[in-house]
Structures are given as C-alpha cells and as structure tokens.
Amino acid sequence: MTESTDATRRRSTIALLASTETSAMVLYGLYDVLTTVGAVYPELVKGAPERELLDVRIVNADGRPFSCAGDIPVRPHAGFADFRNGKTLPDAVVVCDMYIAVTATPTARYPRECAWLREMHAAGVLLSSVCSGSLVLADAGLLNGCEATAHWAYRDMFHRYYPEVTFLDNAALCLKAQDRGIVTAGAVSAWHDLAFYLIARYCGYRHAIDTAKVFLMTDHVEGQSPYAVMTRPMEVKDAAIADCQAWIAENYQVERPVESMIDRSGLGARTFARRFRATTGYTPIDYVQALRIEEAKQELERDQRPVEDIAAAVGYEDGSSFRRLFKKRVGLTPAAYRKKFQNLAAMANTYALNRQPS
C-alpha cells in the first residue's frame, strides 16, 4: 500500500463494544493500538506522523459514560442508535471481554447487545470478540454451527450452555468462521492477535508489521494449551459422580482407574459413562488423562527428574505413550514444556528475590 493511497483511502471504522464487566486492558489496549495505525510508526522512524488509518469508536448500548472493571471510567463515542436507521455502519465490531465467573450462568445477560450484534451481522459487519466476549456472540445465536474460541476456562460453560458451538480451547485466534463474518480470540492477551488481524485486513500487511514493531506485539503461535489448566468444578447434583470426582482426584495414578470409578459408583458401565459425561463434559478416560497430564505439568515445572519417572508417577509406564499424549493435549513436548515454564519460574523467582528488602 503506497503513501498516496494511505492519504486518500476511506478510513475503516472499528467499533469496540464494552460493558461494566470489560477489562480496561483489553478496551484501552485495543483503542491505543488501533488508533495509531499509520501514524506512529512514521513518526518514530521519520520524525513526522502521518494520517491515522482507522476510525476507532468505543460503543455501548446507550452511549452514556460508565465505569468498566476496576472502576475505570469510560466515555463512549457512540451508542447503538448511532449505527441504526440507515446511519453509517462500522466495518467491524469487537466484543471486548465481558467477565463472568466460570460457575455463573451466561445466558440472557446482555439482551440489548445481542440484538444489536444480530443486526450488525445481518448487515454484513464483521463481528469479532476477545475472551469472554465470545459468550455474548454465542448467546446471540451467532456462533451456532461455528468453531470458536474464548479463554480456555470457559470450555465447560460452552459445552453446557452452547452445545451447538464447537469450542476450540487451544486456539489463540480462531478464523474458522471468518467466511461467515465472525472471528474470535482466546484469553485476554489474545487481543494482540486480533488487533494484528484487523490491521492487516483493513490497512494491509505492511501496517500490521509496522504496528507490531512499535508495540512489541507478539502472536501466540502455541495457542492456549500450554497455559490451560483443567477446571474441575464439583457437581453436587449427581452424588455418585461427585464422589468419583473426589476419589479420582487423589487416585488418578492407579491402574484401570475408570473401572475403579465404575465399581465405586455402583452403576453399570454405560450408565456411568453417560452420567459422567453429562456432569463433567468429559468421557471418564479423558477426565483421568486430563488429571494425569495436569499433575505431570506441575511436576515438570518444578522437578528435574527424567520424563519417564514423572510419567510413571502419574500412571503411565510407557514413556513414549506419555510423550505422545502430552504433546497432543498440551501442544508441546514434555521437554519443551519444562524449558518454557521453568524459565518463567526462574525469572519470577529472580524478580521476587530482587524486590526483597535488604
């Protein structure tokens, strides 16, 4: 894209949809980065800013000021009415994160937002989301039949409340539904990946690269799996399954763990499997494997024992099988995971020691 084209092209409009549950990091991070596209890089390199290429607007339902998470003040540029009734529509909407506890009910929390998003989608506006923002898209019915992502901790919530959505808990940025006008990003820091995508789409490859250099933006090529932790809320409505969950949490390393749980529950194998999956979102063997891998991850983070010893400690006698399963679930080999997180642990320990009073 040439400079003359940049100087004359129509600015694309990006609407950032926010609420009282939105984090300031996502909202203002996106706003700060997107508003500088085309302007800041030439200022840093040549000493003179150029034209901003994106028109970025913070939007909420009524356009009135509010405070987002942490009581941070927000003064929206527009309300929904500013993009209705024949008025100019945005090119894209970003549904910022809208925090909800993993034990809460996500449905019917944002009826006005859902209605407006359906209108925008029907009008051909690109819809995107960051983290829990995809729950709003799901509640609007816009993700039905789609593959989508959000923070890995919402896996069970999607399974329970939005079964028509194929939830990808590993993806940092999901483009599987972009031909249907929808792009979703994972955990909150994945707004970097979404911003890079939007800049490349509306301003071109060169501006995306230049902006990444300015802000030291990075992608999350490994996805979310290396960071994901198994969520294990106890289901109290099914006492037999709850008892098995509590038991297997302390006995995941035993031989034939699924058979032991079935015997403990007093249920038939098929009935147990059906009730276990309905309760936890996992098949019994997947649940056991997830527990074992989670324990192995914690061992790898803090222990220098050989991988085979850690595999045996969590219930796998065959080190090769353990390595294959670990790579499939985590996205890294055990050795690569150990290197990544022991390096982080060493850095954190150094920083902690440096701040101690002498």
Rank of each mutant, 00 (worst) to 15 (best):
A228I: 06
A172G: 11
E317S: 12
L44E: 07
L30V: 07
V330G: 05
D318E: 12
M217D: 09
S320F: 11
L143I: 04
W152L: 09
A7D: 00
F158K: 01
T271A: 13
T5Y: 15
V214C: 06
D169P: 14
D82E: 14
A104Q: 12
I199P: 02
L127D: 08
Q178K: 13
R292D: 03
N60A: 00
G331Q: 11
Y162M: 06
T107Y: 01
R118N: 10
E222Y: 00
Y161K: 00
Y337C: 07
M98S: 04
F158T: 00
A48I: 15
D179P: 12
S23T: 11
G145I: 13
G181R: 04
P65F: 01
S265N: 02
H121I: 03
K237S: 15
L142F: 06
S128P: 06
R118P: 09
M120E: 02
N144Q: 14
G223V: 11
K340A: 08
E294R: 09
P73I: 03
V40A: 11
Y337P: 08
L89Q: 09
R201D: 10
A92R: 04
R75K: 08
F276G: 05
P284V: 02
R232L: 09
V56N: 01
I310P: 14
H121K: 02
E113N: 01
S19Y: 10
T279P: 08
L300I: 03
R84Q: 12
E21D: 13
A208P: 04
W116F: 15
R302I: 13
N251C: 01
T35K: 05
Y28V: 09
E308H: 11
D238S: 11
N354T: 01
M261D: 02
Y110I: 05
L54P: 03
L173M: 06
E52V: 07
G124D: 00
T5Q: 15
A345R: 15
V314I: 13
R57G: 01
Y110N: 08
A148Y: 02
E294K: 08
L198F: 05
L89P: 09
A48K: 14
W152R: 10
T184M: 12
